[in-house]
């Protein structure tokens, strides 16, 4: 299993504070696809934070890409976690682009961190920039780009290094319908090639157009784990 949670809890405050996630138990196999749904404050972003290793569980057992993640407060092999993060692609809801870098440099960052050869970096980045339709904006800084363009740069950065696990938090929030469809095609294609994909979204029409297995959260608890059938959002 690429993702395995066994009674995982997450609490941000001190002991005794209310848990953001409560006793989640779920699995996502390699090459699986999951919609992650739930109202605001349900815990979708918290679950994604656990999966891209920005936070560690306060209780339960978590394994990502077949690697056990130690809980909060226990020593962690930092270099091992860093290597693990390089196999995960993340599209953040707030993009998290580096403002002082150009679009090209932002997209190239995961490859540079992985110490890929410069020639390969250039070819891969050009290709993905062209795919998201921003080949001509490669030298623009984030503040020179529209919200939609920034989101496409964030998507390009998340997939340029062909991650084993792709996590997306509202990836179509700033995209028009055409771009959103292109993004879904990309996610489906990566999924078909073996990447495990988890997409958190409020976009019900997108889910209806691309039905698939879903996880549903409510108040930090798992209320839907539709791993076999196709979850249909309410019309």
């Amino acid at each position: 299993m690429v993702v395995r949670l066994d009674k995982v809890g997450l609490r941000y405050g001190p002991a005794g504070a209310e848990e953001a996630l409560h006793a989640l138990t779920l699995t996502v196999p390699q090459g699986g696809f999951r919609w992650l749904q739930g109202p605001s404050g349900a815990g979708k972003s918290s679950l994604l934070r656990l999966l891209y290793l920005e936070a560690r569980p306060t209780s339960g057992r978590l394994a990502v890409l077949n690697t056990d993640i130690p809980p909060q407060g226990s020593p962690a092999a930092r270099a091992r976690l860093a290597r693990l993060r390089r196999r995960i692609g993340v599209v953040f809801q707030d993009f998290r682009l580096l403002p002082h870098l150009t679009a090209f440099e932002n997209v190239a960052l995961p490859l540079r961190i992985a110490a890929r050869p410069e020639g390969q970096i250039r070819a891969d980045v050009q290709e993905i920039l062209a795919w998201v339709g921003l080949g001509r904006r490669r030298d623009a800084h984030p503040h020179e780009l529209s919200g939609g363009e920034q989101q496409r740069i964030a998507i390009a950065r998340a997939v340029v290094h062909r991650p084993a696990l792709l996590l997306a938090d509202e990836p179509t929030g700033n995209l028009d319908d055409v771009q959103a469809e292109r993004l879904m095609q990309l996610l489906r294609e990566m999924n078909r090639l073996g990447t495990t994909v988890i997409v958190a979204t409020h976009n019900e029409s997108l889910v209806r157009r691309h039905p698939g297995p879903a996880l549903g959260l409510e108040a930090g608890r798992l209320v839907i784990d539709d791993a076999d059938g196709y979850y249909q959002a309410d019309a």
Partner: peptide, 16 residues
């Protein structure tokens, strides 16, 4: 701080 946090999440080691 923000840039470091982002680079850290992208898999940069402390040494990097």
């Amino acid at each position: 701080r923000q840039s470091i946090a982002i680079v850290h999440l992208l898999g940069a080691t402390d040494g990097f």
